[in-house]
Simulated scan of single mutants.
Amino acid sequence: MLTFLQELLDKGRTPSMLKVYVAAIAANHALVAGQSVGKNDLVVKFLRGAQRLNLPRPHSVPTWDESLEPYEALPLSRSSRPICGTYRSRLPSRIGIDVWLLNSHFSQQVFKIHRSKVDDEKCCLLVSHLLDHPSLQELDFSHNHISDRGARAIGKLLNRSQLKRLVICNNQIRGLGAQALAHALSKNTTLMSLNLRLNHIGDEGGQALAQALVKNKTLVNLHLGENNMTEPTAVALSQALVENRTLKNLNLSNNRLGVDGSKVLEEGMSHNSSLVECDIRLTDVAQDSEYCTNQIQAARKNQTQL
């Protein structure tokens, strides 16, 4: 482990990037002496020493090619890997994540790296290699610093994998990032659970996701809690619920849906036969609307138990 980290340091990796490597390995590596490898004394001391060296930051990863259409589907071949919207025959060593890391240190079905300060640059790097793992079923990037550019990269991965569960809660994703995810979701045929709580997608992103639900036929759980969404999103979701027949759990808590928004949402639920649970706590809804919503949910749960 220390030899590997030293090699990365010699190649010019920053201390923060070393921490990403350690977090990725620790999340999927067996415990050593009863503790995570990330908490091993020697590893901790090595990271502190690397931090004290204050190495210069390598050149940042190229930004998305703005000449491309916002959600253009790019063809993918085994000989080329997309990095943030541009093509490269191979990853330059100064920005590439070693294939050894992803091939040897994470489950073929689950990849989790949370609370690791992963930003858009690191997210794009990780996603570019995850494209080589079609068996990946669960991806967890929660509690990081991912914004719209990283969300777009994840959207591209969404339709080039067999993901069933995606968790990107508590990041910095806004409307444009949510639109990219919605575009991917409208074409996706495998994802069953999407957790976007504690972001900033607003009505721009909320309405886009609602429109995606009209076309999507696989999503069962959707968490959009605390995302600065208001009445327009409630209206869009109400219209989507009339068409959608697969969504069972919808969490809208801690948004400002308002009295009118809750009434429209209630109307949509009355025409939907699949939704079992809709969390509208702390959404400024009228008491009678919350009561009616609870009654509809109770009736659905009773039907599913019969």
Rank of each mutant, 00 (worst) to 15 (best):
L196K: 03
A26Y: 10
M17K: 03
L213P: 12
I296T: 05
R88D: 05
D148H: 14
N195G: 01
D203V: 08
N254G: 00
Q239V: 13
P92S: 03
K215T: 07
R81V: 15
S262I: 05
S270H: 00
D98N: 07
H200L: 10
R52H: 05
S77N: 12
L209N: 05
Q295A: 05
H183N: 04
K215D: 15
I154D: 09
S79W: 00
L55V: 01
R94P: 06
I280H: 04
D119Q: 11
N249A: 09
L213T: 04
V220Y: 15
M229W: 00
S128T: 12
E290L: 04
K301Q: 14
H29Y: 15
A298K: 12
C84Q: 05
V167F: 13
N103K: 01
S80W: 08
R165Q: 07
S16L: 14
K217C: 04
I280G: 01
T293A: 05
L91K: 07
V99L: 09
A182V: 04
A153M: 04
A151L: 11
S289Y: 00
S186V: 07
L47E: 10
S274L: 06
A299V: 06
G202P: 01
N228H: 15
L265I: 04
M269K: 02
L74G: 00
F46L: 05
N103Y: 00
G12N: 06
P82I: 09
V20D: 06
T3D: 15
D132A: 12
C278H: 02
R174H: 05
S104Y: 02
M1W: 10
C124R: 11
V285I: 07
V127E: 10
L31Y: 14
A26T: 06
T246K: 13
R13F: 15
A298D: 01
V37G: 01
S238E: 01
W100V: 06
A30M: 10
G258W: 15
Q108R: 02
E204D: 14
H114V: 11
Q137H: 08
L53S: 07
K39P: 00
S36D: 13
R13E: 09
N302E: 14
L241T: 05
I154K: 00
P82S: 09
S238N: 08
K156D: 13
S253C: 11
S273F: 03
I83Q: 04
H129Q: 14
L166M: 09
Y71G: 08
P134W: 14
L157S: 05
Q109E: 14
P134F: 13
M229H: 09
